[in-house]
């Protein structure tokens, strides 16, 4: 269980939150002018990086605010959380490599 710092309520346990997918995906306002591929890119495609990931969380059991988190998908390390509209948490050294193929786990 991750301890997550809600930008409003402070640190709470993960069970108070729900996950909301990749952050910083802006909804196109000119959707009528987009090709199916361009629209599909917005609706269906995510970067799914191995490493630093900017993602959305929702403080469902708390203040019911959405916020963003910079989290390493390999180590699980949370580099920071910030409110929508605020600049991304800067993580200069974090790797951000798109996944190529499967990554074998252990049973």
């Amino acid at each position: 269980m991750l301890p997550i710092r809600c930008p409003w309520c402070g640190e709470r346990e993960q069970t108070e939150f729900s996950y909301g997918g990749e952050a910083h995906i802006v909804r196109p306002t000119d959707s009528a002018d987009l090709t199916d591929a361009e629209w599909g890119d917005y609706v269906f495609f995510r970067t799914n990086p191995r490493g630093l990931h900017y993602e959305r969380w929702f403080h469902a059991f708390g203040c019911r605010r959405w916020f963003n988190m910079a989290r390493d998908t390999v180590s699980g390390a949370i580099h920071g959380t910030y409110r929508p509209g605020e600049p991304r948490t800067d993580v200069p050294d974090a790797p951000r490599v798109p996944v190529a193929g499967g990554d074998g786990g252990e049973g």
């Binding site: 802006v26 909804r27 929702f58 019911r64 605010r65 959405w66 929508p84 509209g85």
Partner: peptide
């Protein structure tokens, strides 16, 4: 409820 909050807070603040 979460859907409305999500759009209001993240897309249309």
């Amino acid at each position: 409820m979460s859907w409305l909050e999500e759009w209001l807070q993240t897309e249309w603040p």
